[in-house]
Amino acid sequence: MIHHLEAAWPQEGCGVILQGAGGAGEEGAFRVVPLPNVAPTPRVAYAFAPDAWLQVCLEADARRETLVCVFHSHVDTAATFSAEDRRRAAPAGIPLLPCVSYEVIAIHGGRATSAARFVWRDGDFQGVPIRLPDFRFEKPL
Rank of each mutant, 00 (worst) to 15 (best):
residue 58 L to P: 00
residue 8 A to V: 01
residue 53 W to K: 10
residue 70 V to S: 00
residue 52 A to W: 10
residue 32 V to P: 02
residue 57 C to H: 04
residue 35 L to F: 06
residue 64 R to C: 09
residue 45 A to C: 09
residue 72 H to F: 03
residue 22 G to M: 05
residue 23 G to V: 13
residue 18 L to A: 11
residue 80 T to E: 14
residue 75 V to T: 02
residue 38 V to S: 05
residue 72 H to W: 11
residue 65 E to D: 10
residue 73 S to N: 01
residue 26 E to S: 14
residue 10 P to G: 05
residue 39 A to C: 00
residue 36 P to L: 04
residue 48 F to Q: 09
residue 14 C to Y: 09
residue 64 R to Y: 07
residue 60 A to E: 06
residue 19 Q to I: 03
residue 84 E to K: 10
residue 11 Q to F: 10
residue 7 A to C: 03
residue 2 I to R: 12
residue 5 L to R: 10
residue 44 V to L: 13
residue 54 L to D: 15
residue 28 G to W: 05
residue 50 P to G: 08
residue 36 P to A: 03
residue 15 G to F: 02
residue 23 G to F: 09
residue 19 Q to H: 02
residue 52 A to Y: 07
residue 73 S to C: 07
residue 50 P to C: 04
residue 73 S to H: 01
residue 61 D to V: 09
residue 60 A to G: 08
residue 76 D to W: 01
residue 7 A to P: 02
residue 74 H to C: 02
residue 41 T to M: 08
residue 4 H to A: 15
residue 53 W to N: 00
residue 71 F to D: 00
residue 6 E to K: 07
residue 58 L to K: 14
residue 69 C to F: 05
residue 7 A to E: 10
residue 64 R to H: 15
residue 15 G to R: 00
residue 55 Q to E: 15
residue 19 Q to N: 02
residue 63 R to W: 12
residue 70 V to Y: 00
residue 65 E to P: 03
residue 35 L to R: 04
residue 41 T to L: 13
residue 58 L to F: 10
residue 25 G to I: 06
residue 68 V to S: 08
residue 20 G to R: 12
residue 64 R to S: 15
residue 43 R to T: 07
residue 6 E to D: 04
residue 66 T to Y: 08
residue 69 C to N: 14
residue 17 I to T: 15
residue 30 F to Q: 13
residue 22 G to P: 10
residue 37 N to I: 01
residue 10 P to V: 10
residue 73 S to G: 13
residue 24 A to W: 12
residue 16 V to N: 07
residue 12 E to A: 10
residue 57 C to E: 15
residue 50 P to W: 08
residue 28 G to I: 03
residue 72 H to Y: 02
residue 28 G to K: 00
residue 32 V to L: 03
residue 24 A to M: 02
residue 29 A to H: 01
residue 84 E to T: 13
residue 67 L to S: 07
residue 16 V to W: 09
residue 85 D to G: 12
residue 68 V to P: 05
residue 84 E to V: 11
residue 69 C to V: 13
residue 29 A to M: 06
residue 35 L to K: 09
residue 62 A to W: 11
residue 19 Q to D: 07
residue 34 P to F: 01
residue 82 S to P: 05
residue 67 L to A: 03
residue 18 L to P: 04
residue 28 G to F: 11
residue 46 Y to K: 03
residue 9 W to V: 09
residue 49 A to N: 09
residue 59 E to Q: 15
residue 85 D to F: 08
residue 58 L to D: 12
residue 53 W to V: 03
residue 78 A to S: 08
residue 70 V to W: 10
residue 2 I to A: 01
residue 63 R to I: 00
residue 30 F to S: 05
residue 29 A to F: 04
